[in-house]
Design a protein around this nucleic acid. Structure first.
Lengths: 210, 210
DNA sequence: CAAAACTAAACAAACGTTTAAACTAAACAA
DNA sequence: TTGTTTAGTTTAAACGTTTGTTTAGTTTTG
Protein backbone atom coordinates (compact mmCIF):
# COMPACT_ATOMS: atom_id res chain seq x y z
CA UNK A 1 0.00 0.00 0.00
CA UNK A 2 1.35 3.40 -0.95
CA UNK A 3 2.10 6.15 1.52
CA UNK A 4 -0.63 8.34 0.05
CA UNK A 5 -3.26 5.64 0.50
CA UNK A 6 -2.13 5.10 4.08
CA UNK A 7 -2.56 8.79 4.80
CA UNK A 8 -5.95 8.67 3.10
CA UNK A 9 -7.04 5.88 5.40
CA UNK A 10 -5.94 7.79 8.49
CA UNK A 11 -7.75 10.88 7.26
CA UNK A 12 -10.81 8.85 6.36
CA UNK A 13 -11.03 7.59 9.95
CA UNK A 14 -10.43 11.11 11.30
CA UNK A 15 -13.19 12.63 9.17
CA UNK A 16 -15.60 9.81 10.01
CA UNK A 17 -14.90 10.24 13.72
CA UNK A 18 -15.41 13.99 13.31
CA UNK A 19 -18.90 13.47 11.89
CA UNK A 20 -19.87 11.12 14.69
CA UNK A 21 -18.34 13.23 17.49
CA UNK A 22 -20.22 16.28 16.20
CA UNK A 23 -23.59 14.51 16.31
CA UNK A 24 -23.21 12.10 19.22
CA UNK A 25 -20.43 13.72 21.22
CA UNK A 26 -17.06 12.19 22.11
CA UNK A 27 -18.35 9.99 24.94
CA UNK A 28 -21.49 9.13 23.00
CA UNK A 29 -19.45 7.72 20.13
CA UNK A 30 -17.89 4.28 20.57
CA UNK A 31 -14.77 3.08 18.81
CA UNK A 32 -16.98 0.43 17.22
CA UNK A 33 -19.27 3.17 15.87
CA UNK A 34 -16.30 4.81 14.18
CA UNK A 35 -14.96 1.53 12.81
CA UNK A 36 -18.33 0.51 11.37
CA UNK A 37 -19.05 3.93 9.87
CA UNK A 38 -15.58 4.13 8.36
CA UNK A 39 -15.74 0.54 7.13
CA UNK A 40 -12.51 -0.51 8.81
CA UNK A 41 -11.67 -3.17 11.36
CA UNK A 42 -12.09 -2.22 14.99
CA UNK A 43 -8.45 -2.82 15.81
CA UNK A 44 -7.27 -0.41 13.12
CA UNK A 45 -8.17 2.55 15.28
CA UNK A 46 -5.84 1.45 18.03
CA UNK A 47 -3.31 0.52 15.35
CA UNK A 48 -3.31 3.98 13.82
CA UNK A 49 -4.07 6.23 16.78
CA UNK A 50 -3.21 4.22 19.89
CA UNK A 51 -6.35 5.25 21.75
CA UNK A 52 -9.69 6.97 21.30
CA UNK A 53 -8.53 10.05 23.20
CA UNK A 54 -5.41 10.29 21.04
CA UNK A 55 -7.64 10.11 17.97
CA UNK A 56 -9.39 13.24 19.24
CA UNK A 57 -6.05 14.97 19.80
CA UNK A 58 -4.90 14.11 16.29
CA UNK A 59 -8.21 15.35 14.89
CA UNK A 60 -7.76 18.67 16.67
CA UNK A 61 -4.18 19.02 15.46
CA UNK A 62 -5.25 18.04 11.94
CA UNK A 63 -7.95 20.70 11.81
CA UNK A 64 -5.84 23.39 13.43
CA UNK A 65 -3.08 22.69 10.94
CA UNK A 66 -5.39 23.09 7.92
CA UNK A 67 -6.91 26.15 9.58
CA UNK A 68 -3.51 27.84 9.81
CA UNK A 69 -2.90 26.93 6.16
CA UNK A 70 -6.20 28.57 5.21
CA UNK A 71 -5.20 31.69 7.11
CA UNK A 72 -1.85 31.87 5.32
CA UNK A 73 -3.52 31.44 1.93
CA UNK A 74 -5.73 34.49 2.36
CA UNK A 75 -4.06 37.73 1.45
CA UNK A 76 -4.34 40.17 4.30
CA UNK A 77 -2.08 42.97 3.13
CA UNK A 78 -1.82 45.78 5.58
CA UNK A 79 -3.03 48.43 3.15
CA UNK A 80 -6.66 48.46 4.31
CA UNK A 81 -8.58 50.82 6.57
CA UNK A 82 -9.58 49.60 10.06
CA UNK A 83 -13.14 49.02 8.87
CA UNK A 84 -11.95 47.02 5.86
CA UNK A 85 -9.93 44.92 8.25
CA UNK A 86 -13.03 44.27 10.37
CA UNK A 87 -14.91 43.23 7.24
CA UNK A 88 -12.07 40.90 6.41
CA UNK A 89 -12.13 39.41 9.93
CA UNK A 90 -15.89 38.86 9.76
CA UNK A 91 -15.66 37.11 6.40
CA UNK A 92 -12.73 35.03 7.58
CA UNK A 93 -14.37 33.74 10.75
CA UNK A 94 -17.74 33.12 9.12
CA UNK A 95 -16.12 31.14 6.31
CA UNK A 96 -13.88 29.22 8.65
CA UNK A 97 -16.51 28.26 11.19
CA UNK A 98 -19.26 27.51 8.66
CA UNK A 99 -16.93 25.40 6.51
CA UNK A 100 -15.63 23.51 9.56
CA UNK A 101 -18.93 23.45 11.42
CA UNK A 102 -18.69 19.80 12.48
CA UNK A 103 -15.27 20.36 13.99
CA UNK A 104 -16.43 23.59 15.56
CA UNK A 105 -19.36 21.79 17.20
CA UNK A 106 -16.92 19.31 18.73
CA UNK A 107 -14.78 22.14 20.07
CA UNK A 108 -17.85 23.79 21.59
CA UNK A 109 -18.77 20.54 23.30
CA UNK A 110 -15.30 19.57 24.47
CA UNK A 111 -14.02 22.93 25.65
CA UNK A 112 -15.97 22.87 28.88
CA UNK A 113 -15.32 19.19 29.53
CA UNK A 114 -12.37 18.50 31.79
CA UNK A 115 -10.92 15.90 29.42
CA UNK A 116 -7.24 16.71 29.08
CA UNK A 117 -5.40 19.84 30.07
CA UNK A 118 -3.24 20.15 26.96
CA UNK A 119 -6.25 20.03 24.65
CA UNK A 120 -7.83 22.83 26.65
CA UNK A 121 -4.63 24.89 26.55
CA UNK A 122 -4.36 24.37 22.79
CA UNK A 123 -7.85 25.80 22.27
CA UNK A 124 -7.30 28.62 24.74
CA UNK A 125 -4.15 29.67 22.87
CA UNK A 126 -6.01 29.78 19.54
CA UNK A 127 -8.80 31.83 21.09
CA UNK A 128 -6.31 34.20 22.68
CA UNK A 129 -4.63 34.73 19.30
CA UNK A 130 -8.02 35.52 17.76
CA UNK A 131 -8.72 38.01 20.49
CA UNK A 132 -5.36 39.76 20.16
CA UNK A 133 -5.78 40.08 16.40
CA UNK A 134 -9.20 41.72 16.73
CA UNK A 135 -8.09 43.77 19.72
CA UNK A 136 -5.26 45.32 17.72
CA UNK A 137 -7.49 46.24 14.79
CA UNK A 138 -10.04 47.90 17.03
CA UNK A 139 -7.36 49.73 19.00
CA UNK A 140 -5.86 51.05 15.74
CA UNK A 141 -9.29 52.22 14.60
CA UNK A 142 -9.89 53.94 17.90
CA UNK A 143 -6.52 55.72 17.71
CA UNK A 144 -7.42 56.94 14.23
CA UNK A 145 -10.70 58.22 15.63
CA UNK A 146 -12.89 56.14 13.30
CA UNK A 147 -14.00 53.58 15.93
CA UNK A 148 -15.91 54.31 19.11
CA UNK A 149 -14.94 53.14 22.58
CA UNK A 150 -16.46 49.70 23.03
CA UNK A 151 -15.93 46.59 25.16
CA UNK A 152 -13.48 44.61 23.03
CA UNK A 153 -13.80 41.29 24.89
CA UNK A 154 -17.60 41.36 24.73
CA UNK A 155 -17.46 42.42 21.08
CA UNK A 156 -15.40 39.34 20.28
CA UNK A 157 -17.93 37.24 22.20
CA UNK A 158 -20.60 38.70 19.93
CA UNK A 159 -18.65 37.88 16.77
CA UNK A 160 -17.85 34.28 17.69
CA UNK A 161 -21.07 33.72 19.62
CA UNK A 162 -23.37 34.78 16.79
CA UNK A 163 -21.71 32.42 14.33
CA UNK A 164 -21.54 29.58 16.85
CA UNK A 165 -25.19 30.03 17.78
CA UNK A 166 -26.33 29.60 14.18
CA UNK A 167 -24.06 26.59 13.66
CA UNK A 168 -24.99 24.82 16.91
CA UNK A 169 -28.75 25.23 16.52
CA UNK A 170 -28.85 24.12 12.91
CA UNK A 171 -32.24 22.42 13.21
CA UNK A 172 -33.82 25.60 14.51
CA UNK A 173 -32.39 27.83 11.81
CA UNK A 174 -33.29 25.35 9.09
CA UNK A 175 -36.89 25.61 10.25
CA UNK A 176 -36.75 29.39 10.68
CA UNK A 177 -35.12 30.17 7.38
CA UNK A 178 -37.07 27.45 5.58
CA UNK A 179 -34.04 25.53 4.42
CA UNK A 180 -34.26 21.80 3.70
CA UNK A 181 -32.47 19.98 6.53
CA UNK A 182 -30.87 17.49 4.19
CA UNK A 183 -29.55 20.15 1.79
CA UNK A 184 -26.18 20.66 3.49
CA UNK A 185 -24.76 22.82 0.72
CA UNK A 186 -27.80 25.10 0.50
CA UNK A 187 -27.78 25.54 4.26
CA UNK A 188 -24.10 26.36 4.28
CA UNK A 189 -24.25 29.01 1.57
CA UNK A 190 -27.44 30.65 2.90
CA UNK A 191 -26.16 30.80 6.47
CA UNK A 192 -22.81 32.02 5.26
CA UNK A 193 -24.31 34.93 3.33
CA UNK A 194 -26.83 36.01 5.95
CA UNK A 195 -24.27 35.89 8.73
CA UNK A 196 -21.85 38.08 6.81
CA UNK A 197 -24.47 40.70 5.88
CA UNK A 198 -25.86 40.81 9.42
CA UNK A 199 -22.47 41.00 11.13
CA UNK A 200 -21.19 43.71 8.81
CA UNK A 201 -24.24 45.85 9.42
CA UNK A 202 -24.16 45.13 13.16
CA UNK A 203 -20.48 45.90 13.62
CA UNK A 204 -20.65 48.99 11.42
CA UNK A 205 -23.37 50.44 13.64
CA UNK A 206 -21.52 49.29 16.75
CA UNK A 207 -18.05 50.52 15.87
CA UNK A 208 -18.67 53.52 13.62
CA UNK A 209 -22.29 54.54 14.04
CA UNK A 210 -24.43 56.14 11.43
CA UNK B 1 -39.60 10.44 56.07
CA UNK B 2 -41.71 13.49 55.28
CA UNK B 3 -42.87 14.47 51.81
CA UNK B 4 -40.72 17.63 51.91
CA UNK B 5 -37.58 15.64 52.68
CA UNK B 6 -38.37 13.23 49.88
CA UNK B 7 -38.66 16.11 47.42
CA UNK B 8 -35.39 17.53 48.76
CA UNK B 9 -33.62 14.26 48.04
CA UNK B 10 -34.95 14.11 44.50
CA UNK B 11 -33.90 17.71 43.93
CA UNK B 12 -30.52 17.07 45.51
CA UNK B 13 -29.87 14.27 43.02
CA UNK B 14 -31.12 16.47 40.14
CA UNK B 15 -28.86 19.39 41.07
CA UNK B 16 -25.87 17.09 41.58
CA UNK B 17 -26.47 15.48 38.20
CA UNK B 18 -26.79 18.94 36.66
CA UNK B 19 -23.34 19.96 37.93
CA UNK B 20 -21.75 16.78 36.59
CA UNK B 21 -23.55 16.86 33.21
CA UNK B 22 -22.42 20.46 32.71
CA UNK B 23 -18.74 19.62 33.29
CA UNK B 24 -18.46 16.06 31.96
CA UNK B 25 -21.43 15.86 29.59
CA UNK B 26 -24.34 13.43 29.78
CA UNK B 27 -22.49 10.43 28.33
CA UNK B 28 -19.33 11.34 30.23
CA UNK B 29 -21.17 11.13 33.54
CA UNK B 30 -21.94 7.68 34.94
CA UNK B 31 -24.82 6.88 37.26
CA UNK B 32 -22.18 5.88 39.81
CA UNK B 33 -20.59 9.35 39.51
CA UNK B 34 -23.92 10.94 40.35
CA UNK B 35 -24.61 8.56 43.25
CA UNK B 36 -21.15 9.11 44.78
CA UNK B 37 -21.25 12.88 44.37
CA UNK B 38 -24.76 13.07 45.80
CA UNK B 39 -23.90 10.67 48.62
CA UNK B 40 -26.74 8.27 47.87
CA UNK B 41 -26.86 4.61 47.01
CA UNK B 42 -26.47 3.72 43.35
CA UNK B 43 -29.88 2.06 43.14
CA UNK B 44 -31.66 5.16 44.43
CA UNK B 45 -31.32 6.81 41.04
CA UNK B 46 -33.22 4.04 39.31
CA UNK B 47 -35.63 4.01 42.24
CA UNK B 48 -36.43 7.72 41.90
CA UNK B 49 -36.02 8.33 38.18
CA UNK B 50 -36.31 4.92 36.51
CA UNK B 51 -33.36 5.52 34.21
CA UNK B 52 -30.49 7.89 33.52
CA UNK B 53 -32.18 9.30 30.45
CA UNK B 54 -35.38 9.92 32.39
CA UNK B 55 -33.32 11.77 35.01
CA UNK B 56 -32.20 14.14 32.25
CA UNK B 57 -35.79 14.63 31.12
CA UNK B 58 -36.92 15.39 34.66
CA UNK B 59 -34.02 17.83 35.06
CA UNK B 60 -35.05 19.64 31.89
CA UNK B 61 -38.69 19.79 32.98
CA UNK B 62 -37.62 20.93 36.47
CA UNK B 63 -35.55 23.82 35.09
CA UNK B 64 -38.07 24.82 32.47
CA UNK B 65 -40.78 24.92 35.15
CA UNK B 66 -38.76 27.25 37.40
CA UNK B 67 -37.84 29.30 34.34
CA UNK B 68 -41.49 29.88 33.50
CA UNK B 69 -42.11 30.83 37.14
CA UNK B 70 -39.28 33.38 36.95
CA UNK B 71 -40.80 34.85 33.82
CA UNK B 72 -44.21 35.20 35.47
CA UNK B 73 -42.69 36.90 38.50
CA UNK B 74 -41.16 39.70 36.48
CA UNK B 75 -43.54 42.53 35.74
CA UNK B 76 -43.60 43.25 32.04
CA UNK B 77 -46.44 45.72 31.78
CA UNK B 78 -47.14 46.83 28.26
CA UNK B 79 -46.60 50.52 29.02
CA UNK B 80 -43.01 50.69 27.77
CA UNK B 81 -41.51 51.93 24.54
CA UNK B 82 -40.08 49.40 22.07
CA UNK B 83 -36.55 50.25 23.21
CA UNK B 84 -37.46 49.80 26.88
CA UNK B 85 -38.86 46.41 25.95
CA UNK B 86 -35.58 45.48 24.27
CA UNK B 87 -33.69 46.56 27.40
CA UNK B 88 -36.04 44.39 29.44
CA UNK B 89 -35.48 41.42 27.12
CA UNK B 90 -31.70 41.82 27.33
CA UNK B 91 -31.74 41.96 31.12
CA UNK B 92 -34.11 39.02 31.31
CA UNK B 93 -32.06 36.69 29.11
CA UNK B 94 -28.73 37.69 30.64
CA UNK B 95 -30.06 37.06 34.15
CA UNK B 96 -31.72 33.81 33.21
CA UNK B 97 -28.81 32.28 31.32
CA UNK B 98 -26.12 33.49 33.73
CA UNK B 99 -28.05 32.28 36.77
CA UNK B 100 -28.76 28.90 35.15
CA UNK B 101 -25.43 28.64 33.38
CA UNK B 102 -24.83 24.98 34.27
CA UNK B 103 -28.21 23.97 32.90
CA UNK B 104 -27.68 26.15 29.87
CA UNK B 105 -24.35 24.43 29.19
CA UNK B 106 -26.14 21.08 29.23
CA UNK B 107 -28.74 22.35 26.79
CA UNK B 108 -26.01 23.63 24.47
CA UNK B 109 -24.34 20.22 24.55
CA UNK B 110 -27.45 18.11 24.20
CA UNK B 111 -29.34 20.09 21.57
CA UNK B 112 -27.23 18.84 18.69
CA UNK B 113 -27.07 15.29 19.99
CA UNK B 114 -29.71 12.98 18.53
CA UNK B 115 -30.72 11.65 21.95
CA UNK B 116 -34.50 11.76 22.07
CA UNK B 117 -36.88 13.53 19.79
CA UNK B 118 -39.24 14.89 22.46
CA UNK B 119 -36.38 16.56 24.34
CA UNK B 120 -35.31 18.25 21.12
CA UNK B 121 -38.86 19.37 20.38
CA UNK B 122 -39.24 20.75 23.90
CA UNK B 123 -36.16 22.92 23.45
CA UNK B 124 -37.14 23.96 19.93
CA UNK B 125 -40.53 25.12 21.21
CA UNK B 126 -38.93 27.25 23.92
CA UNK B 127 -36.55 28.80 21.42
CA UNK B 128 -39.37 29.49 18.99
CA UNK B 129 -41.32 31.26 21.74
CA UNK B 130 -38.26 33.38 22.49
CA UNK B 131 -37.93 34.28 18.86
CA UNK B 132 -41.59 35.22 18.45
CA UNK B 133 -41.46 37.45 21.53
CA UNK B 134 -38.43 39.38 20.23
CA UNK B 135 -39.77 39.40 16.68
CA UNK B 136 -42.97 41.08 17.80
CA UNK B 137 -41.15 43.78 19.76
CA UNK B 138 -38.87 44.60 16.85
CA UNK B 139 -41.77 44.59 14.38
CA UNK B 140 -43.68 47.01 16.64
CA UNK B 141 -40.66 49.30 16.86
CA UNK B 142 -40.22 49.22 13.11
CA UNK B 143 -43.87 50.11 12.57
CA UNK B 144 -43.47 53.06 14.94
CA UNK B 145 -40.44 54.12 12.90
CA UNK B 146 -38.00 53.98 15.82
CA UNK B 147 -36.24 50.75 14.76
CA UNK B 148 -34.35 50.18 11.54
CA UNK B 149 -34.85 47.26 9.16
CA UNK B 150 -32.63 44.45 10.41
CA UNK B 151 -32.40 40.67 10.14
CA UNK B 152 -34.49 39.55 13.12
CA UNK B 153 -33.38 35.91 13.14
CA UNK B 154 -29.71 36.83 13.04
CA UNK B 155 -30.26 39.51 15.66
CA UNK B 156 -31.67 36.88 18.00
CA UNK B 157 -28.66 34.68 17.26
CA UNK B 158 -26.48 37.61 18.33
CA UNK B 159 -28.40 38.07 21.60
CA UNK B 160 -28.38 34.41 22.63
CA UNK B 161 -25.01 33.66 21.06
CA UNK B 162 -23.15 36.45 22.85
CA UNK B 163 -24.41 35.32 26.25
CA UNK B 164 -23.84 31.64 25.49
CA UNK B 165 -20.33 32.32 24.25
CA UNK B 166 -19.32 33.99 27.50
CA UNK B 167 -20.94 31.23 29.58
CA UNK B 168 -19.49 28.32 27.61
CA UNK B 169 -15.93 29.66 27.53
CA UNK B 170 -15.80 30.53 31.20
CA UNK B 171 -12.13 29.64 31.59
CA UNK B 172 -11.18 32.01 28.81
CA UNK B 173 -13.18 34.94 30.12
CA UNK B 174 -11.94 34.40 33.66
CA UNK B 175 -8.41 34.78 32.32
CA UNK B 176 -9.30 37.73 30.08
CA UNK B 177 -11.25 39.70 32.65
CA UNK B 178 -8.85 38.71 35.44
CA UNK B 179 -11.49 37.02 37.55
CA UNK B 180 -10.55 34.27 40.01
CA UNK B 181 -11.76 30.96 38.55
CA UNK B 182 -12.95 29.68 41.90
CA UNK B 183 -14.91 32.84 42.74
CA UNK B 184 -18.22 31.74 41.23
CA UNK B 185 -20.22 34.63 42.62
CA UNK B 186 -17.73 37.29 41.53
CA UNK B 187 -17.61 35.81 38.05
CA UNK B 188 -21.38 35.72 37.84
CA UNK B 189 -21.94 39.33 38.84
CA UNK B 190 -19.11 40.72 36.71
CA UNK B 191 -20.18 38.80 33.62
CA UNK B 192 -23.78 39.75 34.25
CA UNK B 193 -23.03 43.47 34.37
CA UNK B 194 -20.63 43.58 31.45
CA UNK B 195 -22.95 41.57 29.24
CA UNK B 196 -25.88 43.88 29.93
CA UNK B 197 -23.92 47.06 29.30
CA UNK B 198 -22.38 45.70 26.11
CA UNK B 199 -25.63 44.30 24.71
CA UNK B 200 -27.58 47.49 25.45
CA UNK B 201 -25.00 49.62 23.68
CA UNK B 202 -24.71 47.13 20.80
CA UNK B 203 -28.46 46.78 20.23
CA UNK B 204 -29.04 50.51 20.58
CA UNK B 205 -26.57 51.20 17.78
CA UNK B 206 -27.96 48.29 15.76
CA UNK B 207 -31.67 49.06 16.10
CA UNK B 208 -31.81 52.82 16.55
CA UNK B 209 -28.45 54.20 15.42
CA UNK B 210 -26.80 57.31 16.74
C1' DC C 1 11.46 -13.04 3.07
C1' DA C 2 10.83 -9.39 6.27
C1' DA C 3 7.95 -5.51 7.44
C1' DA C 4 3.64 -3.48 7.37
C1' DA C 5 -1.27 -3.89 7.24
C1' DC C 6 -5.10 -6.20 8.61
C1' DT C 7 -8.32 -9.45 11.06
C1' DA C 8 -11.32 -12.26 14.39
C1' DA C 9 -11.41 -13.24 18.89
C1' DA C 10 -10.75 -12.34 23.50
C1' DC C 11 -9.73 -9.31 27.53
C1' DA C 12 -10.81 -6.87 31.85
C1' DA C 13 -13.18 -2.92 33.29
C1' DA C 14 -17.09 0.04 33.40
C1' DC C 15 -21.64 0.68 32.18
C1' DG C 16 -27.01 1.09 33.28
C1' DT C 17 -30.20 -1.56 35.54
C1' DT C 18 -32.39 -5.19 38.57
C1' DT C 19 -32.83 -8.11 42.45
C1' DA C 20 -33.91 -9.64 46.94
C1' DA C 21 -33.30 -8.78 51.40
C1' DA C 22 -32.98 -5.33 55.27
C1' DC C 23 -34.42 -1.32 57.39
C1' DT C 24 -37.67 2.60 58.84
C1' DA C 25 -41.64 4.75 60.52
C1' DA C 26 -46.27 5.40 60.88
C1' DA C 27 -50.94 2.85 61.51
C1' DC C 28 -53.51 -0.36 63.79
C1' DA C 29 -55.35 -3.64 67.24
C1' DA C 30 -55.11 -5.61 71.78
C1' DT D 1 -48.15 0.55 76.51
C1' DT D 2 -47.47 -3.51 73.79
C1' DG D 3 -46.63 -6.52 69.28
C1' DT D 4 -47.92 -6.78 64.35
C1' DT D 5 -48.72 -5.10 59.92
C1' DT D 6 -47.91 -2.37 56.03
C1' DA D 7 -45.92 0.51 52.60
C1' DG D 8 -42.13 3.19 51.45
C1' DT D 9 -36.81 3.51 51.53
C1' DT D 10 -32.38 1.93 51.40
C1' DT D 11 -28.82 -1.31 50.68
C1' DA D 12 -25.08 -4.64 48.82
C1' DA D 13 -24.63 -7.67 45.39
C1' DA D 14 -25.32 -9.31 41.03
C1' DC D 15 -27.16 -9.01 36.21
C1' DG D 16 -26.13 -8.92 31.20
C1' DT D 17 -24.08 -5.45 27.92
C1' DT D 18 -21.04 -2.48 26.09
C1' DT D 19 -16.86 -0.25 26.52
C1' DG D 20 -11.70 0.61 25.01
C1' DT D 21 -7.87 -2.07 24.22
C1' DT D 22 -4.87 -6.14 23.30
C1' DT D 23 -3.53 -10.48 21.50
C1' DA D 24 -2.06 -13.82 18.32
C1' DG D 25 -2.31 -15.01 13.93
C1' DT D 26 -3.06 -14.13 8.81
C1' DT D 27 -2.63 -11.56 4.60
C1' DT D 28 -0.55 -8.13 1.80
C1' DT D 29 3.20 -5.45 0.12
C1' DG D 30 7.73 -3.82 -1.48
Amino acid sequence: MSSAEKTDKREHILVTAEELFAVKGFDGTSVRDIANQAGVNLAMISYYFGSKENLLKELIEFRFRSSVEALEERSNDQLQSPWEKIEWIIDFYVDRIVNNRRFHSIMSQEYNTDRSQDIKELITNIKMQNLERVKKIIADGQQLGVFRQIDVEMTLATLMGTITQVINTKNLYCALLRIDKTDEEGYRSQINQRLKIHLRSLFHAHLIGK
